[in-house]
Amino acid sequence: MGYDVNLIFKIIGIGILVGVAHYVLKSSGKEDYALIATLGGLGIVLIWVVQLLGTFFDQVRSVFKLF
């Protein structure tokens, strides 16, 4: 089976970390930093997922001979 299950735990780790950072920054009055932390976490996870999606599309293309 050619997949990396660790990615799920990495995503969850980033999610919990960003949630805690968001909470702490918001309660100390730095709302703009909280937004930046959320966006950063979302960007990192988005890069991982888009890379995975690219390999997925390549696989489907090679299996079904799509163009």
Binding site: Y23, L42, T55
Partner: peptide
């Protein structure tokens, strides 16, 4: 508290399950 990350998590899980049976 982070619905966008939950959505990306479900995307990643779906891709992994799909890749396993492809």
């Amino acid at each position: 508290n982070k619905p966008e990350l939950a959505m990306l998590l479900s995307v990643a899980t779906g891709i992994m399950i799909f890749l396993a049976v492809l």
